[in-house]
Design a binder for these strands. Sequence first.
DNA 1: TACATTTACATCGTGTGCGATTTAATCGTA
DNA 2: TACGATTAAATCGCACACGATGTAAATGTA
Lengths: 150, 150
Amino acid sequence: MEDASVLHLKNQFCFPLYAASRLTTKLYAPILKALELTYPQYLVLMVLWENDQQTVNAIGNCLLLESNTLTPLLKRLEQKKLLQRTRSSKDERVVTVALTQKGIDLKKEALCIPQQITALFEDTTLEPKNLENFHQTLYKLIDVLKEKTA
Amino acid sequence: MEDASVLHLKNQFCFPLYAASRLTTKLYAPILKALELTYPQYLVLMVLWENDQQTVNAIGNCLLLESNTLTPLLKRLEQKKLLQRTRSSKDERVVTVALTQKGIDLKKEALCIPQQITALFEDTTLEPKNLENFHQTLYKLIDVLKEKTA
DNA sequence: TACATTTACATCGTGTGCGATTTAATCGTA
DNA sequence: TACGATTAAATCGCACACGATGTAAATGTA
């Protein structure tokens, strides 16, 4: 008997991560559509709402993304007048990203989003205690993966 | 004091899922590159290695993907001579996907991949017991998300 | 001060994901 | 048996991701 079961989807942890991530994005989509945002755009704004005036590099460190992904994304947010990209005069290589007033104001609209998402889970059997463990393991996993893919 | 901490990345479970999923794909990339496969292509092959001769729909049910994503991906795998797409004669709407001999043979090369991935985690502090819980919660989460995004 | 190296961002090409729509075939039902 | 509804893929357009490369500015060092 050949033990090919190692190759079954159920026995790997890669696939469920991939599936859960995509489904989560899909869960946010209708809520974010009201703000005319995609999920990655929402992430960038969360980073800036927490700390305004960051470089492309700094935003990338928070989200684990690089300029090849961020530059076009930031340009789209700039076109929506939510932020402004300015090349630093001190170091011409650096681009600083700052929220516009419109971008700052959008935070008020976004404040209710976490609540809306949480509400979707209220009638489910996902135990908060398990979720706490889940959250911790997820971050441990990320740390390991960051090291292994560096 | 405004409680904007609900919007912090650390307090959401959406972001770590997104990050872990991307990092995992990156972990597989160099290993899959030896087989000239992308990660989603590898997933499709895993589905077919487990059960050959499936419709586009059936593959999509396994991976939670639809024809708009699968059709181009399957065409690329067909170009690589790993599988063949055939429109069913019984029901002309249905396309059946079958591995070629080359596709079947590739399974032997892939059998060592899970082992290689596992080996990368051997020196880490991720407890197998925690990972078991993690895996379970992940699948529960997927079930809930599937329902909520249906 | 020259100049190789490093750094920050941008650009390019390829491959997903996915909402929306299209096309063609089949099904259900009057 | 007509014919509207449903179904399976495909197509289209847009927005990521990301490896590889390019460009310009800053840095380190002889």
